[in-house]
Nucleic acid binder design. Structure first.
Lengths: 248, 248
DNA sequence: TTGTCGCTTTGACGCAGATCAACTGGAACA
DNA sequence: TGTTCCAGTTGATCTGCGTCAAAGCGACAA
């Protein structure tokens, strides 16, 4: 946006980090072509592992459809989820050889991949890719920091409510509807995955879900379908100041 | 590093994010000049606030000397530190109007600032700045994710040990010594700040520090000076697999 | 010397969430 | 129609850390 001789193009992979391609008049004009040439797709089934922490990772990628998780594990088996990747989110680190986290498909998953080497070369020549990636990474950093507040200071009930609110919001935004009033959605995570995300045990997750249901904050249909009669009510449970003061 | 027609210059502010300036032959060669023109310094005393969350923030900056903290606060006063800024770390977000966190000087602090507008313009024209910033942001994201594991899954003792290990390591690297064997350093944080960082209360921090002392893992001289007779012993207490498998 | 202030330590007690264990309910399959 | 399986629920009990309260300690001032 700060660039002056700049125009926006769509490239045909709807959810790529580079979907909005800013073309700088001073740069080559055929980078888009090259981008198309080096990209390819991979599919994973729900539950399948994309990479293990420490594995060699020769590609970077962005999520096209589905949900992937980033998880860290301690020697004794304690697990903490550190990222939830939704469509258009980016995985992988230019300049790094090995994966730093376990990446797992939480649902069926399609990713748009770029082999790392050509992608890095491209990035070095095409300033807007680095800029776009910087923006996305800053967003993720903000999300990570909000998650640190959740992990360090929120109660179990607040944690659950926050997670539900986030999923509801993201789900709604994917369907281009705003999250307010009554909202329904499907949980893409098991109780155990929720626990790993929230720094809780699965029993505590289950108990708090029941409590929220008992208190009328949410409704449950089966185990996975959530009905939120009043989204603002849910937000009150998160402990956040939801004054809507957006910072962008 | 991936760029070919590239050379490195030092600009005179030793700890700036842009301290290594990669000059691209295709870009203007006088950007360094412009950078020098728009930069200026600010000093803060220990305890002073740099910005409050929500305030207008018209500059970006990097730490020259001292330590700053990023903190989030909930309405009812619960606090969580979400970042510890050491020399050469970057603060502020290009493209954002308001600060997202409270920024506070933990020690006396000098920052090298750039007014946001010209910095953004510069960034748009100078690809290497965005690339350098991307690298730094990815590092911070990794650190944040490690911190999420700590907050979500580690015990109080492991949290304290981890924090001490991190400070010892960073302190050692600033003095260009490697952290191993016996290490001494000064804590730049109060017990309360440690607690805010670790998602604990200050009483628990104090108790665990005493426990580590009692068990001979650390020695205390006064309240702030820490002596670590055996750094590996301390690492064992952190719960991390310290196989030294570096991922860069 | 005495007082006060900020930071830290220590003790006593309670509770949120972990742990261990039993049970439920739906789906797949024979 | 029963069997197995697995995710989820619920209950009983335990415990690590929070909470509340008091006291220690070094720095500085009067």
């Amino acid at each position: 946006m700060p660039h002056q001789d700049l125009q926006l193009l769509s490239h045909d992979c709807g959810s790529c980090p580079i979907r909005h391609r800013a073309v700088c008049a001073r740069c080559d004009a055929d980078e888009l072509q090259r981008l198309e040439q080096i990209k390819y797709y991979r599919s994973y089934q729900a539950g399948q592992t994309v990479t293990w922490s420490g594995d060699r990772m020769d590609f970077v990628a962005s999520v096209v459809t589905g949900i992937a998780t980033l998880t860290q594990t301690m020697e004794d088996g304690r697990r903490q989820m550190v990222g939830l990747l939704l469509p258009s989110d980016f995985v992988g680190r230019p300049g790094r050889q090995a994966a730093a986290y376990d990446v797992t498909a939480a649902t069926d998953l399609v990713m748009c991949c770029f082999r790392k080497k050509p992608f890095e070369e491209l990035m070095a020549k095409t300033p807007h890719v680095a800029q776009r990636l910087l923006e996305m990474t800053l967003d993720e950093l903000d999300a990570a920091r909000e998650w640190m507040l959740l992990l360090g200071r929120k109660t179990a009930r607040e944690k659950i409510s926050s997670l539900l609110a986030i999923i509801a919001r993201r789900d709604a935004s994917l369907r281009l509807k705003s999250a307010q009033g009554a909202v329904n959605f499907d949980l893409p995570l098991t109780r155990e995955e929720m626990a790993d995300y929230l720094g809780l045990t699965l029993e505590t997750v289950s108990r708090q879900m029941s409590a929220l249901k008992r208190d009328g904050v949410i409704g449950l249909e089966g185990k996975r379908h959530i009905m939120v009669p009043d989204f603002d009510r849910l937000l009150e449970e998160t402990g956040d100041d939801n004054d809507g003061g957006f910072l962008v």
